[in-house]
């Protein structure tokens, strides 16, 4: 201990407030990035797989924006599912099983720093994928985003939502092997959204329900923010820049709601040690 703390211990408490430390978070994130980089499979899953959505654009007519919207929507969705959701889920469960988290929790690190630190590398990966999509889609004949800021906000909220869903899933996942199964509900929910949303034959009630799924919200956000498409059946860009903000409020609210719900459920049942 340094001389500065040479006071009776009973008075030491106020001097050492238990605050979230950005310094510790940056440090943890850096090392988690190193670990992610050394895990080749996770890295390929996290970067290459999401960009595969752009392959959809190759055979299509150049400039077909409906096709562009589903391809780019797919990229954002996969960027949320793999580098964020599945990666964070398996990292957290693995480290919990191997008692790495229990070890960390004996030290000065706070729980919230551990959680954010595990999620950030995946989130950064997802954001990088979304950023690369802009020039890549442009090269494939698609327009640049109509509202780039909205697209960025959407990518960020999507990543946060999938991190929240990962921690909620981790709370009831027994082991890293079990994560292959327990990840399914969220993956199916996410993928089913845009597929169902594209079906025009569904009744209005069902379409409303579908629009509340995470995947449909992401898809809608890309259609509005990037392409200015108004409604699920639209194929022509009709929205103005300012209209994109108000049109995006709905899907953004859905994503924020999922994030808050997932984190609330996770915090109620979070476990830091393997079940004995």
């Amino acid at each position: 201990m340094s001389a500065a703390t040479a006071t009776p211990s009973t008075t030491a408490a106020p001097a050492a407030a238990d605050r979230f430390s950005v310094r510790r978070l940056v440090h943890l994130t850096r090392w988690n990035l190193v670990l992610l980089a050394r895990n080749r499979l996770a890295l390929v899953y996290g970067t290459v797989l999401p960009l595969a959505g752009l392959l959809l654009l190759l055979p299509g007519e150049r400039g077909d924006i409906a096709l562009g919207a589903s391809g780019i929507g797919g990229v954002v969705l996969t960027a949320g599912l793999f580098p964020v959701f599945y990666n964070v889920l398996s990292q957290f469960v693995n480290r919990r099983d191997e008692l790495v988290l229990k070890r960390m929790r004996t030290g000065e690190v706070r729980d919230s720093e551990l959680l954010v630190g595990i999620a950030l590398p995946g989130v950064l990966c997802a954001l990088a994928v979304c950023a690369v999509t802009v020039p890549a889609a442009s090269a494939l004949g698609q327009p640049l985003p109509l509202n780039a800021a909205l697209f960025a906000v959407g990518a960020l909220v999507s990543a946060a939502m999938f991190a929240g869903l990962a921690y909620w899933t981790a709370a009831w996942t027994r082991s890293a092997e079990a994560a292959q199964l327990t990840s399914m509900p969220v993956i199916i929910l996410a993928i089913a959204g845009p597929i169902l949303a594209s079906l025009t034959s569904l009744s209005e009630t069902v379409q409303d329900l579908v629009s509340y799924t995470p995947g449909a919200a992401i898809s809608e956000l890309v259609r509005v923010g990037w392409f200015g498409l108004d409604g699920t059946g639209a194929t022509e860009s009709t929205l103005s820049f300012s209209e994109t903000w108000s049109q995006a409020a709905g899907p953004l609210a859905v994503m924020v709601a999922w994030t808050v719900l997932a984190l609330a459920l996770a915090s109620r049942s979070m476990r830091w040690e393997p079940r004995s």
């Binding site: 201990m1 211990s9 030491a12 408490a13 001097a15 050492a16 407030a17 238990d18 605050r19 090392w31 190193v34 670990l35 050394r38 895990n39 480290r95 191997e98 008692l99 790495v100 229990k102 070890r103 004996t106 030290g107 000065e108």
Partner: peptide, 22 residues
Amino acid sequence: DRAAVRRRTGVLLQRSGFSGDL
């Protein structure tokens, strides 16, 4: 008083783990 205590204690668990890739 978690932060104040943790700063001044060192703990060795009966079993703990580390990331094998580091």
